[in-house]
Amino acid sequence: MSEERFGQAIAADQRIEPRDWMPEAYRATLIRQIAQHAHSEIIGMQPEGNWITRAPSLRRKAILIAKVQDEAGHGLYLYSACETLGADRADLLDMLHSGRQKYSTIFNYPSLTWADVGAIGWLVDGAAITNQVALCRCSYGPYARAMVRICKEESFHQRQGFESLNALAHGTPGQREMAQDAVNRWWWPSLMMFGPQDDKSPHSAQSMEWRIKRHSNDELRQKFIDMTVPQAEVLGLRLPDPELRWNPARGHYDFGAIDWAEFRRVVSGDGPCNRQRMEHRVAAHDGGRWVREAALAYAAKLRQRGNGHHGGRPDQEEAVA
């Protein structure tokens, strides 16, 4: 009975909500996808967060703090969506720390210069947005709603990355060289963010059927390239692909072959920063355990003393200004 309702809802492009019946595989796929998305946000704080203390102007510093803070927030929204499926954030973090769940491979590359921050904003966030807009119409309600919230906040991230790179690209020769070098290193990994080619993606079909995935990997990758090439022209920076050219017959840009061997290497743990990203993350988590325990101990004392709540009805509360 419920299985039929599930199928009807999917077919009618309606939302599935937390208490609806759902196939176990649908639930498992979503938990994995949402959790890995959340993990990506928090690991992603590292390559950009690296440059907060070194940002070359106070305005850039402020923008970068705000951006990285947003990423933490996005991770929180996504863990929150994942928990509606019965997953516990502590368990999800355990799975991240032990390598049983992954995060986007893009964050296993190092942010070597200030220009990398701009390149990450322009290319990596650009790729993420291409993916995310589609997810706003994902079949699972809490995930779709989290994505709408994220997309609203994300709009400034890509613009700021582009603006930063633009200042460099039109700056001193040293700055221009920095910008070009960063783009040279971040272009191909950004294309790999969309995942393997469609014919090498075995799980995609089921995800598309359940409307968890709304477009194929290749479709989204092409869309990103088509959008980004003209932006590179505005920047006056070269994209490191000699085969990149407009194909009028297809109505899209042709592009060169992606090095899938590199992709597989980085995914399996041999990227430049895999170990470092995880050590950093685990150190924060383990190092903070005594703090979390202290907060719990205090909460228990509050309960014992009988003042764990403010008391009173919510509609009599003052605004939390």
């Binding site: 907060i52 990285v68 933490a72 927030g73 863990y79 150190a283 703090v291």
Partner: peptide, 19 residues
């Protein structure tokens, strides 16, 4: 305080410190 970002004991504190 910026040095705490991505190193805080709980994600919620990364947000608070950044604020």
């Amino acid at each position: 305080l910026s040095e705490w970002i991505s190193r805080a004991p709980q994600l919620e504190e990364d947000v608070a410190m950044a604020n």
